[in-house]
Amino acid sequence: MQNSEANDKIEELIEKAKVGDVHAFREIVIEYQSYAYALALRFLYDECDAEDVVQESFVRIWNHLHDFDSKKKFTTWMYTIIVHLCYDKAKSNKRRNRIFERFNKDTSELHQSGTFPIEEEYIAKETLSLIQYLADGLSEKQRMIFLLRDMQDLSIEEVSAMTGLSASSIKTNLFFARQSIRKKLVKGETTI
């Protein structure tokens, strides 16, 4: 995704999608939906919610594709939309108090709905639980900044563009998020 060939390809697909080419848009969805899903799931901790956010994000991307400036990075724009939708989803979840209920669901129920082998799903579930445990106590903003910077490997400038926060604010939030997470890991001697 980083090389220039891939960039040229995505630019071409975007230009085609801008004039209403659904097939080109399908290619874009296939290329990027896993990145979108990874961020959404790590933030929301719920597969259904993450899928909802991914779906809504791509619908928005399609509807506003004419607004996209081809000189800018597509992933930055895509993540900006996902970040905002994740915040909205978390807000509505908070209202309904669904997060707690969903995490109390039996793991066997999740296994039935998925297509992964048992071991892989167990690891995925455990990793997600670990992220939730580590991020517990952080604000949504700190959590999102940590995910974007340290889990998705995005630069401070990109995180700033996605969240609308200043670089100094991002650094401060990242400082507290990392400190809290690392202290938990050191204190708890967690293993994976």
């Binding site: 899903y37 990874a38 597969e47 297509t115 992964f116 995925a124 990793t127 992220i131």
Partner: peptide, 12 residues
């Protein structure tokens, strides 16, 4: 954390 990062969640 590197292991957590490497375990990219996959869509079902």
């Amino acid at each position: 954390l590197s292991k957590v990062k490497a375990a990219v969640p996959r869509i079902r």
